[in-house]
């Protein structure tokens, strides 16, 4: 057993072989399930990606909608209220928020499934948990950007010329805010894919993070290694896509 796992080699030797194998797409076999750990991980990847992408998309879009609505509102109270709610939401750790949602919507109201990924409805609670956190985050960023551009010359000029307020916000302030925030969002989205570990535990979600924690608690390290490598690759791919997106959106950046 020890010999077949190569445990008798030196640590450096083990690591060296891991690197060589990894380059060939072989991240070792799971100790528990004696199948390729990479296959096990890739099996879990879709569920993880779906949860991350849907939550992110919902959160990002709603944040834009709310930020624009707040900017257009004539009462500054609206903005303050939204930011306060965002602060409160951010003071509740995501896993805890998830449990509270389960308590209210599954246990008490019996409306939504709490555990697993069985139907479209299974997505509602985990997505709500994660996306509310994302909303809070991006609402803040958009708000800060709007607060700055609100006082800028181009906005004042446009308003003074009689351009409708909604048009100024949507055509000028929003695109200006989008570019820098997309960079942040790219990194955050990459982090999100691997960062949902705890949420996956709460909702018994068949994602990557849970697999990794199981790997850790069962000391099945090939699984952990494969999981970390796959998450790193996903992160790099996402950032590459964001860079491309950035080039498309920003007239100043031209691909060589």
């Amino acid at each position: 057993m020890r010999t077949s796992l190569g445990l008798n080699d030196s640590l450096a030797g083990q690591y060296g072989r891991f690197l060589v194998d990894a380059v060939h797409g072989d991240l070792g076999n799971s100790i528990r399930q004696s199948t390729s750990s990479l296959a096990l991980v890739l099996q879990r990847l879709p569920a993880a990606l779906q949860l991350a992408f849907i939550s992110f998309a919902v959160g990002f879009v709603l944040a834009i909608v709310l930020a624009v609505a707040g900017e257009l509102s004539t009462r500054p109270r609206v903005r303050t209220a939204m930011l306060s709610i965002a602060t409160v939401r951010q003071a509740i750790p995501p896993y805890l928020f998830g449990i509270l949602l389960i308590l209210v919507f599954s246990v008490w109201a019996g409306l939504l499934p709490a555990l697993g990924m069985n139907s479209a409805l299974s997505f509602v609670l985990p997505v709500a948990t994660v996306s509310t956190f994302e909303i809070a985050l991006y609402l803040r960023l958009f708000n800060a950007s709007f607060a700055e551009s609100r006082r800028s010359d181009y906005v004042r000029t446009a308003l003074a010329k009689g351009v409708p307020h909604s048009r100024v916000v949507i055509r000028h302030q929003l695109p200006n805010a989008l570019l820098p925030i997309i960079t942040v969002a790219g990194i955050n989205l990459g982090v999100l894919v691997g960062g949902l570990v705890v949420i996956e535990m709460v909702f018994n979600w068949p994602g990557l993070g849970r697999l990794i924690i199981e790997g850790v608690t069962q000391r099945d390290y090939p699984i952990v290694q494969a999981g970390v490598v796959v998450i790193a690759v996903v992160f790099i791919v996402i950032n590459f896509i964001v860079d491309l997106l950035y080039a498309v959106l920003d007239p100043r950046v031209r691909l060589a």
């Binding site: 990459g190 570990v197 990794i212 924690i213 850790v216 000391r219």
Partner: peptide, 15 residues
């Protein structure tokens, strides 16, 4: 380091 999810990093470290 910012690109690595903190909780995941800590899980691996603690493990």
């Amino acid at each position: 380091q910012l690109a690595i999810p903190v909780v995941l990093l800590l899980i691996v470290l603690v493990a």
